[in-house]
């Protein structure tokens, strides 16, 4: 009874995660400069990979696998944003100017 429901939920999460990862990848290709690309990647990666992990947790059920997946989830929500933050910080320090639209009044 529960199994089909769990399967559907996990498929929704997996597909949703895959879509977000795809959006992130398109963002990297399409956005004009470093900071906007970083933005696309960081937001979509955390959400996308997180959703994939949640989908896998539905498949794992109550077992040791789920505990390990939760640990990976915990590591990821910390390391991903930190890495992107460090990268942006390093870019700023090496005097990489963000792309700003000069035509708009600021």
């Amino acid at each position: 009874m529960m199994q089909p429901l769990l399967d559907v939920l996990s498929w929704i999460c997996l597909l949703g995660g895959a879509i977000f990862l795809l959006i992130g990848a398109i963002g990297v290709l399409r956005f004009p400069d470093f900071y906007t690309r970083l933005h696309a990647v960081s937001v979509c990666d955390t959400l996308g990979a997180g959703l994939v992990l949640v989908g896998l947790i539905f498949q794992g059920g109550l077992s040791l696998v789920t505990v390990k997946l939760l640990l990976i989830f915990y590591f990821m929500i910390f390391t991903g944003p930190t890495a992107v933050h460090a990268l942006a910080q390093a870019a700023l320090q090496s005097k990489l100017k963000p792309l700003v639209d000069d035509h708009e009044p600021r």
């Binding site: 590591f75 910390f78 390391t79 930190t82 933050h85 460090a86």
Partner: peptide, 19 residues
């Protein structure tokens, strides 16, 4: 001068080092 600004990185590194 840069490394002093990496507060976030340092906090996370301290958290993850023992793990």
């Amino acid at each position: 001068p840069g490394i002093r600004k990496l507060v976030v990185l340092r906090v996370i590194a301290k958290l993850f080092f023992p793990l």
